[in-house]
Amino acid sequence: MPMLSQAAPDTNRVGADALQQRSYKIVRLKHPGRWLSGVAVVILLALLVKAFADGKIQWDVVGKFLTAEVILRGFANTLLISFFAMILGAGLGTLFAVMRLSQNPVTRFVAWLYVWIFRGTPVLLQLLIWFNIALVFPTITIPGLFEARTVDVVTPFVAALLGLGINEGAYMTEVVRGGISSVDHGQTEAAKTIGMSRFQTLWRIILPQTMRLIIPPMGNSAIGMLKFSSLATAISFTEMLNAAQQVYFVNGAVIELLLVCAVWYLLGTTVLNIVQFYIERYYGRGVAGVASRPPFRFSFGLSRTAPRPANEERS
């Protein structure tokens, strides 16, 4: 009986606490600075848009050339050279990264020399050298198989591909090397104990884990490559900026044609950003801290709801 008389007040106290907890009023935190800064940024953007709208820009010319055949063909060439240069750069980067980690000192030195030369000189200078390589080697000869003039082989497209791709490979070498070095060495030792070759270990164990780490910098490199491809206009490769220059040299609509290029570059980089996000999410499955929300989703905290008390009944 004494035990029952003590349990009853405890039960009543728990019920009273639950009722009191339900009656709490949830007050959200105020963020006046956040809203004031947001309003200020919106006002500045509106003033910027108004300034361009009132400026001496022929927007009808911008709309006309936005889908002009010459611009679209130039943008296609931009995408083409960017794609193949990134493929070349990724392949060279992986190859020389493995060489940098080799036990052979000669192989390591050659890889270091490659990175030192092509990462230490401007990409525009490399493009000009490749474009004028015929001054050094007038002919390209493979005894008994092939012989041709260098100017016929190293066209502006090939020169742009070599200049952009080889330069990108020097940067990708360090990216891939860092990713490979981050994989625990114990996994390599475990692969050796079960009889896997060095190539099998690299292909099946190390590179799949490295992908999660190198995808973000590779995505940045792809976006940068799309923009750096405009340097190929210096060697007469007809990419988008070169095509726009050919047009505004005739009609004088310089700003209008440059704005057209800006629109297409922004469109291309936006698509690459979205692709990079989904590739990162694919290789980051099961890893804590990897973002799972799609890009371009904005939240100011308005949709957040307070947590329901643990002992509150569902309605």
Rank of each mutant, 00 (worst) to 15 (best):
L4R: 15
A7M: 15
Q20D: 12
I26H: 11
R34H: 13
S37L: 15
V41G: 08
L48Q: 07
F52R: 12
Q58L: 08
Q58A: 09
K64P: 04
F65D: 01
L66N: 11
L72V: 14
F75S: 07
T78E: 05
L80G: 13
F84W: 13
L88S: 09
N104C: 06
V106F: 13
R108Q: 13
Y114L: 03
L125S: 14
I133T: 07
F137R: 11
T139Y: 14
T139E: 13
T141W: 12
P143C: 12
A148G: 07
V151L: 11
D152P: 11
D152W: 10
F157R: 02
A159G: 04
A159M: 04
L161C: 03
L162K: 06
N167G: 08
T173W: 02
E174F: 06
V176Y: 06
R177C: 04
G186K: 00
A190H: 04
K192E: 05
T201M: 08
R212Y: 06
P217A: 13
L226G: 09
S229K: 02
I235Y: 02
F237A: 01
M240H: 06
N242G: 12
Y248V: 00
F249W: 07
N251R: 00
V254H: 00
C261D: 01
G268A: 04
V271A: 07
V275C: 09
F277Q: 09
Y282E: 11
V290W: 05
S292D: 14
R308V: 09
